[in-house]
């Protein structure tokens, strides 16, 4: 009798699991279609960066890359096609992953990496956020190394066809239902239009000072894995003989890494970059044309359209004078 009940349970469990697998496959198919048919928004940008970008200049980085580098301005000044493959909320492991795939497809003439000290600081979220690469694993198995950073079981979770679209339901629905409401990017560049007020900057500086008093005695421990990815990124451009520009783009406070207790990380960004012969390092974090100019910033971390335009024009001039030869 007991044996019969156990067999009955196991059979029903197996039937339920089958139902689950079928529903997962069906829903996963629907989500995949929806995801890869996006024509606007950050999913579309990531798909383009991962699968298609073949421009002469490729820009990598976080939201600061997306919001700071006006691709039209750079393309006009240099005469080279430009794509901004930065992504909101992502850091150096994401840049290394997308770069690895992009370099396999095509050899750009110049690579720009926007980076800052925060990316080398200890913060596990930079790996958790790599989940946005999950939809691309089937097509790009080389992403396995990166996805394993999320958890050692991550690639096993991909037996589920729904899981790659985890946490993307609202963006997918919004872009599919209201495509007009999503901002269209200009070759990956998405400027911000808000303007920071002087009062906000004053308050922000005050808050940073208060916070600094709390964290100043904490021992800085740079994230060795992130340093590894930074080096991997630069190793890849060195192997492909692609000139590379590592940039710390403008910040609203002069050298904010001091108040973030991340001077060690800032120094590492510079030291590692300058150790590579193909790399040029540019630091705008103490540039008086930008810091203490709230009118050029949208928030504490990002330039607004005006600031991005000025920064990009300046960078474009630099590129035109130093990199035109490679065109």
């Amino acid at each position: 009798m007991r044996k019969k009940t156990i067999i009955q349970f196991l059979l029903r469990l197996a039937a339920f699991c089958l139902l689950l697998v079928l529903s997962d496959r069906l829903l996963g198919f629907v989500f995949s279609k929806l995801y890869f048919s996006q024509e606007v928004g950050q999913f579309h940008q990531t798909t383009y960066a991962v699968d298609s970008a073949r421009q002469d200049i490729l820009i990598f980085g976080s939201s600061r890359a997306v919001r700071h580098y006006d691709t039209d301005s750079i393309a006009t000044a240099t005469g080279m096609s430009t794509y901004n493959a930065g992504r909101d909320g992502q850091m150096i492991p994401y840049a290394a992953a997308v770069e690895e795939i992009a370099l396999k497809r095509n050899r750009p003439k110049l690579v720009i990496l926007d980076i800052n000290a925060w990316e080398l600081a200890d913060n596990p979220s930079k790996y958790e956020k790599l989940t946005i690469l999950l939809p691309y694993y089937d097509k790009h198995p080389e992403l396995k190394t990166y996805l394993s950073e999320i958890s050692p079981f991550e690639t096993y979770k991909l037996y589920s066809k729904v899981y790659p679209f985890n946490s993307s339901i609202f963006i997918l629905a919004s872009n599919a239902l209201f495509p007009a409401s999503a901002k269209k990017d200009a070759n990956g560049y998405l400027p911000l239009d808000a303007v920071m007020t002087p009062a906000f900057l004053k308050e922000y500086k005050g808050n940073m000072e208060v916070r600094y008093q709390k964290i100043k005695n904490k021992e800085e421990k740079p994230d060795q894995k992130a340093i590894g990815y930074y080096k991997k990124f630069l190793d890849a451009t060195a192997a492909a003989h692609v000139p590379t520009l590592v940039v710390i783009s403008p910040t609203v406070i002069k050298d904010p890494f001091i108040l973030d207790n991340q001077e060690k990380e800032k120094q590492l960004v510079k030291d590692i970059a300058t150790a590579y012969p193909q790399v040029t390092f540019l630091d705008y974090s103490a540039d008086p044309r930008f810091y203490d100019h709230p009118e050029k910033f949208s928030d504490a971390f990002h330039l607004n359209r005006q600031g991005a335009s000025e920064f990009s024009a300046d960078l474009a001039r630099y590129l035109a004078s130093h990199f035109r030869a490679i065109h």
Binding site: L20, D24, I150, K157, S160, V162, N166, S167, I169
Partner: peptide, 20 residues
Amino acid sequence: RWGSMAFTVLLLLLLGVFNG
């Protein structure tokens, strides 16, 4: 019964945060 349970599992996969 099975539909609601399967739906809950799928919601878990779609909306869950799996960072341990």
